[in-house]
Design a protein around this nucleic acid. Sequence first.
DNA 1: TAGCCTATATTGACACCGTCAATTTTTAGA
DNA 2: TCTAAAAATTGACGGTGTCAATATAGGCTA
Lengths: 197, 197
Amino acid sequence: MQNQKTFHHGNLKHALLQAALKLLDEHGAAGVTIRAVAKETGVSHAAPVNHYKDRRTLLTALACELFKEIVSTTLTRLEDSSLTDKERIFSFAVALCDYGLAHPNRYQLIWRSDLVDHQDAGLLAVMDELYDALCAELSELPGKAGCDTDTLAVSLWSMAHGYIDMRLTGMFEPHNDSVTHEPRFRAMLELYFRSLQ
Amino acid sequence: MQNQKTFHHGNLKHALLQAALKLLDEHGAAGVTIRAVAKETGVSHAAPVNHYKDRRTLLTALACELFKEIVSTTLTRLEDSSLTDKERIFSFAVALCDYGLAHPNRYQLIWRSDLVDHQDAGLLAVMDELYDALCAELSELPGKAGCDTDTLAVSLWSMAHGYIDMRLTGMFEPHNDSVTHEPRFRAMLELYFRSLQ
DNA sequence: TAGCCTATATTGACACCGTCAATTTTTAGA
DNA sequence: TCTAAAAATTGACGGTGTCAATATAGGCTA
């Protein structure tokens, strides 16, 4: 059991992630520079290299933590046993949408393949966890429109991700903060579910 | 009528865009720097400022040209009068998917809101042109599942964009080059169309 | 307790980057 | 031909990631 304040700084590795998250929220992915993270943490500009060998590694670790948040809140919603089959399926898309609109910078970082290593084992494991959970829900549905489960899962996730991503660019509709009530997204989900009957 | 080789360089503005496109294809958006574009064009590092006031303006102009390509190829496909209603709708999604998988760097640049100004009038006009064409096709369908046209259009576009975007990260499936035949994407489109009946 | 070894942190350097100011060169038009 | 504007160059500034060299602190063994 190692103390909180061993070594020079303590556990700098975790402190760096915290600082990176703060900078991400405040200034977007472009603001999460090695040097800014180091300054925010109160350490010299080359200190982070001991814990994350380069910026890509740091941002990958951060993206992994962020996706864990998404998985966690999604699975928590599914613990409600009073949900209908339809609502259980919708939970995946709605949780993703809520998170994306509430934390645009976090959501966008996750999908920045130039900044994040999407072959990272840790990140793949977390993503698979959510994907597998979605497939498990879908496979229990009575009618599946003659589609395999993967097609249904990828369809739903694609629609949700595409909507969030394009909405964050401000392309389709002006970005407002009424995240809780999203009539268009609901209509899209209803349309999706309709095809399964 | 102004000559091709007026002024110092000729029409540097167009040459810069060409160089930017080459660098984009070869090295991704991160490789399209003002200085690299200038060097590729054979001018000094500060020459581009006379035609594009900063990097964002240059990349926005480039993104606009790229989206024009997408609109052009999509509308060309629609000129085939032998297409069924379903195939006409699919053309929008398939053209987008083909383009995205054939030119990952180009497609990804278009949606990089940190690099491209999505409020740019020129870019908005081109995007609206494609969106309006899609809505025109959708509004002629007999059954619309009780949805307004916008919901149908945003659903289809979201699904297509989300699929392309996530596929380019290599998240769902290994990225291969068999762009022409995409069975999963076809199945997703069939699922979408099924919900309209 | 003394000393060594490794993990950790600092400093400084390098080549890039975007952008600006000052300057020079070219061109258009009176 | 002359002048003013447009275009291009040069040089500088603060910022970036990353590396090498150096300094320091901690755990561990003797």
